[in-house]
Write a protein that binds this DNA or RNA. Structure first.
Lengths: 206, 206, 206, 206
DNA sequence: GATGAATGAGTGTTCATTCAT
DNA sequence: TATGAATGAACACTCATTCAT
């Protein structure tokens, strides 16, 4: 559990998510892990492999997260479960955007998207495309059920998601993540969601 | 105008805004400017000074831009001029977010905010704080005039600005800026603004 | 026989004879032997010891080879046995220059003579000095027997051996050793030998 | 003339020709040139570029050498000039095999042919193919003129060249090149040539 | 017999910067 | 104004080797 392997990954993620991949040297990592530089290469083929492993783990985690969200959606057949929407939000906020590991990887991707085409693809998919798709599904379901009258679920999703994304940038992905910033985000986000659904038709059963 | 001085700045901005400050070497810059590396140091104290000059120029430009916007606001005393709001938007979009020079600097700040505390401060101020302040003033004015009934101008401003920011990220600050991306942004943004004001109370006189 | 010990030696010789001692890493060897790098050090003190063992085995083999050749010579007392000379050549070609193991070691020595004084000594002895000495003995015997009239057996030996050496370089020590290259060598070498003895006085009883 | 540029090349050639390309580090070179390691990269793109430049210069030199030899051949129309053959030999020995620069490059190629396919090609061409071609031309000319009766100029060339090559290996390409080794080579080579032409038909007009 | 883990010494290379000319 | 030449500090990475298990 405290294997060197994992310590390298953990320290690397910490540093990468603060300064970006290329601004962190193997020396920097080793200083914190308390091993010599050459030892890193016993555990990882090269610096890139550390990055890749982090991204790969993140993708596995994100995949399972999103699957869970989608299964919650699919369970709502004809009538909405109590607080079903809240549970989707909670999961997405607490176990994704504010999850210790996820938050750091997203931060890292946020930085690296500018240097690294692959990182950009991953970032776009897991921060834009995928969450928006799920959001669209939610709205389309609400429309199908006659709860929302608006026709275009996709555009609604963007409109809904943009402020969430905005608050996330403001609170969660700049500076350190701590209880204060987490609460800042929660307050802004939930307040916004409430007023959004109030406007849209009172469908929000909170 | 074709002074070496300016050519260094121009090439640097091009490269910095594509790959970030530290991913661009003096070599890279000189290759494009067609001078030798040592020559750079006749014109600038060091690499950082090139960056600083770019940021300084941007800030001067942004300052005058924002002053112009505020003066437009202050001219609207008791009754709104025709298309006053449109002119604020147009200016902000065309001469700021989509202005060749501004767009590149913002891109650069977007990248550098993660490595450089000063860059973060500048980015936050000119992309979040300042535009939101102006937006707030607009909404508060509309509320004062009785055109909007909503009480919280600041919150309204965020809600309004977030999707603009979102569309800007999507169209204007990833990949090259060209007519296609500009039009993509205009379409999304103006459509959103229209529906926003439609919901808020028909105050949008477009 | 399938002992790790032997597999290390075999793989090492293969690689050394292709790329030279220092261009082959312990990693490379272990990849092919399918053991971990640290395991090598159970069997050999260090990398050099692998090399040394190969050379030592080669020297033992060469020594016995040369002794056999000399005993063939010594058996020819007053009258030459049928095909005696042919048998010397055949042995030298087939069981030395073209022997799988010998060929690889000679290749290795050929490469290493430039980096390693000891290797140079071994190479010179077993490729030049010793073969030339035996050759000299042959010619001196032929002169003693009155078959050849030329006085200087040593110079004759060099003149005789040089093209053999040349053909060996051309066919046997560049690129892979296979039936095609072996036959190329045999053809050139035997044709040359025939014409050599034809010129020298018809002493070649083939 | 004492430009760093040239000093790097000169020292590199010295070291490369002694120990081979990869056994010589940039550090080794810099120690002798008395510059810092990073300075090398002002003059050459990388280590390989030093090697390439040396080979390129050698090839230019060899090309002009061989052209000169061929022009000597072409001048002999119907009757052989006095000592024409001697002049070909002298040139080839003194200005090629024993030329300070050439000798070192050939040594280097001799070593590198085993690690480097390109080096092998260059070595084979300038040490085997090209000299043998010229030698063949000589013999074919002598045959055309009726001075030699042997029909196969090519085979004759190999037979003639092999001992030269052998003596070169023995005297010129192992250990340092100095007056002693040069004289050793000259003695062996000229003695051999004399006896070769004596056997072949007295065509040697020395 | 074999290996997981670690390491010191070294390799080629990049980079921002300096300074005399 | 511009540049040729040089450099110190850093960087990612390789390699032979050691040692406890």
């Amino acid at each position: 559990m405290n294997a060197t392997n994992e310590r390298i990954l953990s320290v690397s993620l910490d540093l990468f998510s603060e300064k970006g991949y290329s601004a962190v040297s193997i020396r920097d990592i080793c200083k914190q892990v308390q091993i010599k530089e050459s030892s890193v290469y016993y555990h990882f083929k090269n610096k890139q492999a550390i990055f890749d492993e982090l991204i790969s783990r993140f993708q596995k985690y994100a995949e399972s997260m999103m699957k869970k969200l989608e299964s919650v959606l699919n369970e709502q057949n004809n009538h909405l479960g109590d607080n079903f929407y809240m549970s989707v939000c909670d999961n997405f906020f607490e176990n994704y955007l504010m999850d210790e590991f996820c938050n750091k990887v997203i931060r890292l991707l946020l930085i690296e998207q500018f240097h690294n085409a692959e990182a950009k693809k991953v970032y776009d998919y897991w921060i834009f495309t995928k969450p928006l798709n799920i959001q669209s599904e939610v709205f389309e379901m609400l429309i199908r059920m006659g709860i929302l009258c608006k026709a275009d679920g996709k555009y609604l999703a963007i409109k809904y998601y943009a402020p969430i994304f905005f608050f996330a940038q403001k609170w969660l992905f700049s500076g350190k993540l701590n209880d204060e910033t987490k609460n800042g985000f929660r307050t802004d986000a939930y307040q916004y969601i409430q007023s959004f659904f109030a406007e849209i038709g009172g469908a929000y059963n909170g």
